[in-house]
Design a protein around this nucleic acid. Structure first.
Lengths: 335, 335
DNA sequence: CGGCACAATGTAACCGGTTTCATGAAACCG
DNA sequence: CGGTTTCATGAAACCGGTTACATTGTGCCG
């Protein structure tokens, strides 16, 4: 692998000129430019990114902060893959690489610095944060250090930090309106962890739409889960004694768990109980009779995250308000 | 952020000594070592990885080659996320970062060099390849260039290249044996793309077990799909006229599609047709009556890939034979 | 006590780029 | 035609580490 010096020598020019050919081609004469480019292709010259990063402090890498340590409540969710693929594709299109950061252990495995240190050591240009609402101090350290951040489904604010989210409140309204339209009166809901932003928003939207329609949502008609299937099953068991005719589960996984509880109780969907979920993960379409749900635009989220980080890297200020993507009602057999 | 020079100055030692404190601590006297470490903690010194990479040509980064470009048949599969999480966790535990490589576009978007160039520019130590059996020439370029490679479900050989796979043939046998045990005689199968290694192995194992049991698998009882749901549906439609009593679908997604076709034909599962899948993705447990399937150890695959690449980075030769992980029969309602 | 091995440290070259500043030649101006 | 811009390029410092080699000060040996 030839270096810039080697290439410069073969072209009979200085390294500065070669460097210019690749970085500011407009200021080098067409003749030399051609010559250098041809020779570069011939010898297979590739600029060394480490050297470039060292000199410029820009790495063309976006960090992904996603703590998959099994001791921590790292977020695993079936739709993350869709987001990740979209994110990676959109970044690739800009020539940016996505670095899945290993937490830095030099200050201890639980250090508040574990992400920040990794980011700084690698001169990562910005980060995308996938977290489950746990407000990990190590994530906050990034915000405090003013690393350009884009958080998914997490409300962070700071001069260099913005977030991307679905219109959770609007989705909650969509769900409520749909159940109202279907003529339901005894309506219950299974929410996510109450202290997480998406869960709170979905519930707020849902409740607001019910209120506007002149109904109220009793506390006893609210059960909460942890997004995952088993918690939906358990929550539904708690709700069954209230004999609702319709349930809004704030996540599809929980909805599927709830459906199981409903079946086990000998009730039919949607005849005895209608159910609507949120997310539109793959199983929603597959589990009979098909789960009506509020779809999130997963690809849109990934793409928006990429756009947001790219904009910040180009110098735009971080939008103070979250970028909100529309949700859509997908009607299937469960309502 | 302080540099090594700064730290050396404050400690009253040379940069070489500081460097040794972090790289070969055993050859520096305990006194200075302590002093340097204390001072490093005090000023928040972090070694710059780009500089280190530049000097050593080791980056502590493993590349992930996974072409998600929508124009290409990049592999998307529900279980990839599990593999990815396991891979990332296992690498993180070794202090290695996972770099999702953006294809290098400097030689054109379809260049055979697009991954290799990215790998070389970033001095990536090794790569993990996720591909769908398409034998992309750009992937082969990595093998040819003798980059340390670990391929998932892809049979590559080379002095620096090994692969990780489930025991697909064994899994195929498991499926056949299970159907035989259940007393089925009219058995059909839906395979993956015939030119892919996992599909071929699963079919081979399946057929072998049938043969050993004194049965044959007629060509007309074999339909192939592309792993995804719709193709399973279509394949099953083709098989229905053969009125099989049991079907082995070489992937769960296709199995779910097949189940749909079976239902639409007014047949019951498992009473009229039993079906067994492969993979054990999340939906398998959720789609009624529960899909019996041959489970792959997704976490094991990710972990094994990490171990394999780590071993190669430490100097071990690439195992010529693939690392094969056991599969397991998961019995549910569909058989 | 001279010579030697060894442990601890320093000096300086090097990794491969970017960028500031200087330089020389050509173009432009009155 | 002399002086000033402008353009293309080169020289050299710099980014922040690693490491081969040189240097120094011990302790040990015969």
């Amino acid at each position: 692998m030839s270096s810039i010096k080697e290439l410069a020598r073969r072209c009979g020019v200085s390294v500065a000129t070669v460097s210019r050919v690749f970085n500011t081609p407009e200021i080098v004469s067409p003749g030399t430019r051609r010559h250098v480019l041809d020779m570069a292709a011939e010898v297979g010259y590739l600029p060394n990114e480490s050297a470039r990063t060292l000199a410029t402090k820009k790495s063309n890498m976006v960090g992904l902060v996603w703590d998959t340590d099994h001791r921590r409540p790292g977020w695993r969710h079936p739709f993350l893959q869709d987001i990740l693929v979209a994110l990676k594709s959109a970044l690739s299109a800009q020539g940016l690489h996505l670095l899945m950061l290993a937490p830095d252990r030099s200050a201890g495995p639980d250090s508040r610095q574990r992400f920040l240190r990794a980011v700084q050591r690698h001169s990562v240009d910005g980060v995308v944060i996938i977290d489950n609402g746990s407000r990990d101090p190590a994530v906050l350290a990034l915000v405090d250090a003013e690393v350009p951040c884009v958080a998914l489904d997490l409300r962070f604010t700071g001069p260099t930090c913005t977030s991307i989210t679905s219109d959770n409140a609007g989705g909650g309204r969509l769900a409520a309106q749909h159940l109202i339209d279907r003529g339901h009166h005894r309506i219950a809901t299974i929410t996510g962890p109450p202290d997480t932003w998406p869960a709170a928003e979905r519930l707020a939207g849902f409740r607001a739409a019910l209120t506007e329609a002149g109904r109220t949502l009793a506390d006893a008609d609210i059960a909460s889960g942890d997004w995952y299937l088993d918690s939906g099953y358990a929550a539904m068991k708690r709700l069954l004694p209230r004999s609702p005719t319709a349930v809004f589960a704030a996540g599809d996984e929980m909805a599927v768990g709830a459906m199981r509880a409903i079946h086990e109780a000998g009730l039919r969907i949607p005849a005895d109980i209608a159910i609507i979920g949120f997310d539109d993960i793959e199983v929603a379409a597959l589990v009979p009779p098909g789960l009506t749900t509020v779809a999130q635009d997963k690809t849109g989220i990934g793409t928006a995250a990429a756009e947001a980080i790219v904009a910040m890297l180009l110098g735009s200020p971080a939008p103070a308000e979250p970028t909100t993507l529309p949700t859509a009602l997908i009607t299937r057999g469960s309502t």
